[in-house]
């Protein structure tokens, strides 16, 4: 891997989506926030960590929108970008993005010992891809501020939300599949891919082995290193399965306190599941095959 220069650093941040989410068109941060002059003169400027947190959160959400419509497309903009719009409600309407972010950030018992180095790798990695980044011109000072903010965030005691490294992984793969995805509609490279390109991104993750781990260039302490490529294979599969489970499940309309549904779940309507809601039983008992109710040796 090449040494970090301003150019490769910029490319890497662009590829994991951070640069675009921060300062691209529609980005979360006003460029002026990254201008050092402001920092010196404006005492009200939020600390670096607060600056970067919403960028990462929006980036993760956008990336996960790209993932959930991959699992179940609907009439939304992400499904259109993907090239598979559908007239009936899909994952976005089913609240699958919230489902997956909540699962990742609050419930996946993924050890911080792994999340942290992956997260760190995604912002400090040295992937010099040589990709042109049209429209993402940033001044070295802005880049520097962004980097400092990221570093401060990673060094803080805050547990890293898992949705961030996962989004970074998807975005990195997205730009591997289609370098032009660093720019365009939505905030994240992954959400800009076509359906077939998203499938290619997953193909790369599932193939894994040395390639991806090398690309991530994560320096895991032994003996964790061994676990990482296997874990990535699992993550690749699990993202797909969870996104579909979330899209067809009831989580978005479930009232935890009353233990009832606020609305009919999208997945139930799509599939015609229990048209009148939950039951105590069904009248589906036909009889016994060949009339036999008992067998013996």
């Amino acid at each position: 891997m090449a040494r970090a220069g301003t150019l490769s650093r910029r490319a890497f941040l662009a590829r994991v989506g951070i640069l675009g989410a921060a300062v691209g068109s529609g980005g979360v941060l006003a460029r002026s926030l990254l201008a050092p002059a402001d920092a010196a003169t404006n005492p009200l400027l939020p600390p670096a960590v607060d600056l970067i947190r919403p960028v990462l959160a929006e980036l993760a959400r956008d990336t996960m929108n790209g993932l959930t419509v991959f699992a179940m497309p609907g009439p939304d903009a992400y499904s259109r970008t993907q090239g598979t719009p559908s007239r009936t409600p899909g994952a976005i309407e089913a609240g699958a993005t919230d489902f997956i972010i909540n699962s990742l950030d609050n419930f996946v018992p993924f050890p911080d010992e792994l999340a942290q180095p992956i997260g760190a790798a995604l912002v400090t990695g040295l992937a010099d891809s040589g990709i042109e980044l049209p429209g993402l011109d940033v001044l070295p000072v802005q880049l520097h501020s962004l980097d400092k903010a990221l570093a401060a965030y990673l060094e803080s005691d805050e547990a890293l939300p898992l949705s961030f490294p996962i989004a970074g992984l998807l975005n990195l793969m997205a730009t591997q599949v289609n370098p032009l995805a660093v720019n365009g509609p939505h905030l994240s490279p992954f959400a800009r891919l076509s359906y077939a390109e998203k499938a290619q991104a997953f193909e790369l993750i599932e193939k894994t082995d040395a390639d991806l781990v090398a690309l991530l260039d994560v320096h895991f302490p032994e003996p964790l290193k061994d676990s990482v490529s296997g874990l990535l294979k699992f993550v690749g599969g699990a993202l797909i399965e969870f996104a579909t489970f979330g899209a067809y499940g009831e989580s978005a309309v479930y009232d935890k306190v009353r233990r009832t549904l606020r609305k009919r779940p999208v997945g139930w309507t799509a599939t015609g599941y229990q048209p009148d809601g939950p039951v105590e039983g069904w009248d589906d008992f036909i009889g016994y095959y060949q009339g036999r109710q008992e067998v013996h040796d």
């Binding site: 018992p109 993924f110 599932e206 061994d226 296997g230 294979k233 699992f234 690749g236 699990a238």
Partner: peptide, 8 residues
């Protein structure tokens, strides 16, 4: 948490 080092 459990580790499984493959898609499974």
């Amino acid at each position: 948490y459990r580790e499984w080092p493959q898609n499974s």
